[in-house]
Simulated assay, not measured.
Amino acid sequence: MVPVPPALRRYVAARIPYDVDFGAAGTHRGLPSTTLTFVLPLDDPLRVSWAGRPASLHAAWASLSGLHTEPAEIHHDGTQRGVQLALTLEGARVLLGRPAAALSGALTDLDEAEVPRALRELPERLHSVPSWAGRVALVDRTLAALAARAGDPAPRAEVAHALSLLTSGTRVEAAAAEVGYSRRRLGSLVREECGVTPKAYQRIARLEAARGLLGRRPLAEVAARCGYADQAHLTREWTTLAGCSPTTWLREEFPFLQDPDRPGGAGSGHD
């Protein structure tokens, strides 16, 4: 996989070309994340809804969603191809021309989101490119041109620092004190930037960290490493935010893996 160009890494946390054969039609679970999700499908419009809320189904040739605290369902006919990007909070301002809070909890497309014209034209341009290398290069060029224009200013430095502290597990009160704000003031600024409360952001960040370890470490160790009180706490939080337990998520994502808490299972492997 070609890495994100250095000039874009402040704005794009990940850029993933995908070509997946699921074997049969179904749905794929989209978990909450501290980044915005921007998907450019190739074969058919992407159909996505909030889990358990079929009336929220949205179909588009480019899907954009902000931070959220519930799982999404990506509907597919058995195969999917396209390019998925994870945009940082600064990336939302610079590339989309608006703070991430404007898209919090939304499942929308580029026209509804009122993003720059270069992004709105990207899906059609992408369909005319025959190779994966060419598609990725087109996405990178488009984003680099937008970044060069320097859209909205970056998030306030103290808010960015507070979010970094929250991601590392610092309590909300301590993060507020570190950046010189009251808890209430910090809460207002974080909601203005992200669209979620500091506590919700921290829960999402903790889920994201745990996701990177699931299947590689026993659940009790994942819970301890990621700041959960214990394994039961991890399971409760995953059920709330992801709509399933960690073990269920592992079975859905990696059906060939063994039980991560059994001897010899996936959780006993090495990094």
Results as ranks from 00 to 15, higher is better:
residue 208 E to M: 06
residue 233 H to V: 01
residue 187 G to D: 02
residue 233 H to R: 13
residue 247 T to M: 04
residue 235 T to S: 15
residue 214 L to D: 13
residue 200 A to P: 02
residue 209 A to C: 09
residue 200 A to S: 11
residue 229 A to P: 01
residue 180 G to F: 11
residue 186 L to C: 09
residue 201 Y to L: 07
residue 223 A to F: 03
residue 185 R to C: 02
residue 210 A to P: 07
residue 245 S to H: 08
residue 202 Q to L: 02
residue 221 E to I: 08
residue 183 R to K: 10
residue 179 V to P: 12
residue 233 H to W: 04
residue 239 T to W: 04
residue 235 T to W: 04
residue 169 G to C: 08
residue 192 E to Y: 05
residue 167 T to H: 13
residue 236 R to A: 15
residue 221 E to F: 07
residue 206 R to S: 04
residue 242 A to M: 09
residue 207 L to D: 14
residue 178 E to V: 12
residue 237 E to V: 15
residue 169 G to Y: 08
residue 208 E to I: 04
residue 193 E to L: 08
residue 222 V to N: 00
residue 247 T to E: 14
residue 185 R to K: 01
residue 222 V to G: 05
residue 196 V to P: 07
residue 209 A to S: 10
residue 224 A to E: 14
residue 234 L to R: 00
residue 217 R to I: 07
residue 218 P to T: 09
residue 169 G to R: 11
residue 188 S to P: 00
residue 190 V to H: 01
residue 199 K to S: 05
residue 204 I to G: 00
residue 243 G to K: 03
residue 197 T to P: 11
residue 168 S to C: 14
residue 172 V to T: 12
residue 185 R to M: 12
residue 215 G to V: 00
residue 192 E to A: 15
residue 232 A to W: 01
residue 223 A to Y: 02
residue 177 A to H: 09
residue 210 A to K: 10
residue 168 S to F: 07
residue 188 S to M: 15
residue 236 R to N: 12
residue 171 R to I: 08
residue 218 P to G: 00
residue 169 G to N: 12
residue 247 T to D: 10
residue 173 E to N: 05
residue 204 I to W: 01
residue 182 S to I: 03
residue 193 E to Y: 04
residue 203 R to T: 06
residue 177 A to F: 08
residue 210 A to D: 03
residue 245 S to E: 13
residue 172 V to I: 15
residue 207 L to R: 14
residue 166 L to A: 06
residue 240 T to I: 03
residue 190 V to W: 03
residue 216 R to D: 07
residue 177 A to S: 12
residue 215 G to M: 05
residue 201 Y to S: 05
residue 180 G to V: 04
residue 201 Y to H: 03
residue 243 G to R: 08
residue 236 R to G: 06
residue 218 P to W: 02
residue 232 A to F: 10
residue 188 S to V: 14
residue 224 A to K: 06
residue 217 R to Q: 12
residue 241 L to I: 07
residue 240 T to F: 12
residue 211 R to Q: 15
residue 236 R to Q: 10
residue 186 L to G: 05
residue 214 L to I: 13
residue 179 V to Q: 04
